[in-house]
């Protein structure tokens, strides 16, 4: 972690119609910092990281990403936005691989279309990335034929092929069967070790504690608490963060968990 702030969110507000998702969210992310964002469902975690690459426009506040300035209720220039996005990778909960393209073509499309790099060069890099994930054998297959864990690792390759400086992950493992979660987390952990700056929405508390430098707890339309991962997860300072963590760490004690147990799951 260094002192350069690469994502600087200030006073961010987002609503859909009358519905306020969050209000006055501020968050600075430093180069090589891994920030895990946790919080109850529907609190706006996905919405927050989608504001960073402006997949969602927002209503107020500012975000500075790698020197690009985004402002609430102002449409950014299209060339600037494309440049920003080409330097910020995103991995989705539902993978969103392109089903009509092979694994390899999924990975090289961005660099070819956006960065105008020669196919041969991009293919070489794509094969290296696939090899890193242990997926060389899958290069010519269509995504449909791959397991969920493999698809998500391909999605990570697709984002990395653009050589991004920041990676955004939106619950990358929550759609996976439990036995496939590990391989994806391992890939993310490796990225963290290599010094990638990451914003990661996750429900995997152990992973967050282990890999993240900083944990952000969102609750009640805002950031309830942020701090060093271990500190926030082990001894949260605010009541809202404590309440949330109590629920996720001891699901058996909450009404939610009790219901689940009665349901026999």
């Amino acid at each position: 972690m260094s002192n350069d702030v690469v994502v600087d969110i200030k006073g961010l507000a987002k609503h859909f119609g009358d519905r306020v998702v969050f209000d006055n969210v501020s968050l600075a992310v430093h180069k090589s910092e891994v920030v895990a964002i946790i919080g109850p469902s529907g609190v706006g975690k996905s919405t927050l990281i989608r504001c960073v690459n402006h997949l969602h426009p927002f209503n107020a506040g500012t975000i500075d990403v790698l020197g690009y300035h985004l402002q609430g209720d102002v449409a950014p220039s299209k060339p600037m936005l494309r440049e920003l996005r080409s330097r910020v990778g995103m991995v989705f909960q539902t993978f969103n691989l392109f089903p009509h393209l092979t694994v390899l073509d999924n990975i090289i499309l961005g660099p070819i279309e956006v960065k105008r790099l020669p196919r041969a060069q991009v293919t070489e890099r794509a094969m290296d990335l696939l090899a890193m994930m242990g997926l060389q054998q899958r290069a010519q297959m269509y995504p449909k034929r791959l397991s969920g864990g493999e698809q998500q690792r391909v999605a990570i390759c697709r984002a990395l092929a653009m050589e991004p400086e920041i990676m955004l992950f939106d619950e990358p493992t929550s759609m996976l069967d439990p036995e496939l979660v590990g391989e994806v987390l391992e890939a993310i952990r490796r990225l963290a070790k290599q010094g990638m700056t990451m914003l990661l929405v996750t429900h995997e508390m152990m992973f967050a504690k282990d890999v993240a430098d900083t944990v952000v707890v969102m609750a009640d339309h805002t950031v309830a608490e942020r701090g060093p991962a271990r500190q926030v997860l082990e001894s949260p300072q605010t009541e809202r963060a404590r309440a949330f963590l109590r629920r996720v760490l001891n699901p058996g004690l909450s009404s939610d968990g009790a219901r689940r147990q009665r349901g026999g799951v």
């Binding site: 996005r85 995103m90 392109f98 956006v114």
Partner: peptide, 25 residues
């Protein structure tokens, strides 16, 4: 929607997204 979002997130312009991602599907 996730298809065009993934393509836009890579930095593609809307025309390329339409031509390479949406129309083939």
């Amino acid at each position: 929607r996730g298809q065009s979002e993934a393509a836009l997130a890579l930095g593609m312009n809307r025309r390329t997204v339409m031509r390479k991602i949406v129309l083939p599907q």
